[in-house]
Design a protein around this nucleic acid. Structure first.
Length: 222
DNA sequence: CACCAGGCAAGTA
DNA sequence: TACTTGCATGGT
């Protein structure tokens, strides 16, 4: 998948951190708000999600108990700006229902499980895929599970660090093999990769202007 | 007008 | 396993 196994990831982190500075992700006030945002931002710009989250806050629905109680059709209307709003209302309700039925609505106890157990349980909930699960594990439960997203793929392919498009688990495994399991490091690196990914658009063939340009495969050492 | 944005599930071969 | 399709608003 790439020739320079170790050192590259750490070098990427050091470069991006020096260039952009600390990101302090996730943009949310509470673990529950992280979960809501993680579901709402699926294939959707954060700006559209921010409107929906603000809407929920104005209606007093940014708590687990309140979201459990709100009718799904009303919820769908309030999150309209985030797109796929019927699907996402269903997903949010599915998550609430799972915690109610398996943990007596004790969200903290649900999030207190060890990393792998929590991740696999999240993946069994309808509407929670690998990226959403890892986002919740890393930013809501504060446990070390690396988050891969479209920007991670994009930054890596643009710089020639991957030949074929790797699967989610392959790319995640690569990060987790190269780095020590440190929550703060995982949180910052993912945020920095998103920030970097914003420098490109989907069809931009190269990475001009980004702080990693000289690390492109072929020009990088080793 | 077309294309894109911090995915996921279900169906098909 | 590896495609394909539906889901949907808001910005460029």
């Amino acid at each position: 998948m790439m020739t320079d196994r170790n050192g590259l990831i750490r070098l990427i982190f050091d470069r991006l951190h020096g260039f952009f500075g600390p990101q302090n992700w996730w943009p949310a006030d509470t673990p529950f708000e992280v979960i809501v945002g993680a579901i709402l931002t699926q294939n959707t710009s954060w700006k559209n999600v921010a409107h929906a989250v603000a809407n929920l806050r104005e209606h007093g629905l940014l708590s687990f108990e309140a979201l459990c109680a709100v009718p799904e059709p009303l919820l769908a209307e309030l999150i309209r700006s985030s797109g796929y709003y019927n699907q996402k209302a269903r997903k949010l309700k599915a998550f609430c229902r799972h915690v109610c039925e398996t943990r007596h609505a004790d969200l903290d106890r649900f999030l207190a499980q060890d990393t792998d157990t929590l991740r696999s349980e999240l993946l069994r909930i309808r509407g929670v895929g690998p990226e959403t699960a890892d986002s919740i594990v890393l930013y809501a439960a504060h446990k070390p599970s690396f988050v891969v997203d479209t920007y991670t793929h994009r930054v890596f392919s643009r710089h020639g660090w991957v030949q074929e498009s790797p699967s989610y688990d392959e790319l995640r495994g690569f990060f987790m093999d190269c780095l020590e399991a440190d929550v703060g490091l995982f949180q910052e690196l993912h945020a920095l990769l998103v920030r970097t990914g914003h420098l490109f658009c989907r069809k931009t063939p190269r990475c001009g202007g980004c702080p990693l340009e000289d690390l492109r495969a072929g020009t990088a050492v080793g």
